[in-house]
């Protein structure tokens, strides 16, 4: 099992705070609507989870 960051898209304000702290550049805000995390790049470090001002990113366990 690995941990990956997941965004609750409906509540995302697309501020991009998460983009700035991601050490793997795994997050983008395409089209200014909500943050999208590239699962292949995400290592589940949780930096974005801490940073998100709306606290709408969480770490979830996923099957490898």
């Amino acid at each position: 099992m690995k941990r990956k960051a997941k965004v609750k898209k409906e509540q995302c304000v697309a501020c991009g705070c998460c983009v700035k702290v991601c050490p793997r550049a795994a997050i983008t805000v395409p089209m200014g609507i909500c943050a999208v995390i590239d699962e292949q790049l995400c290592v589940g470090c949780g930096k974005c989870v801490k940073e998100c001002p709306a606290s709408i990113i969480e770490l979830r366990e996923v099957q490898e």
Partner: peptide, 20 residues
């Protein structure tokens, strides 16, 4: 709250998101 809490309810942020 968190440092950039303002971003959540910033009127410009809300408006630009609506435009997008």
């Amino acid at each position: 709250f968190k440092p950039r809490s303002w971003c959540v309810y910033c009127p410009m942020g809300t408006m630009t998101q609506l435009i997008c």
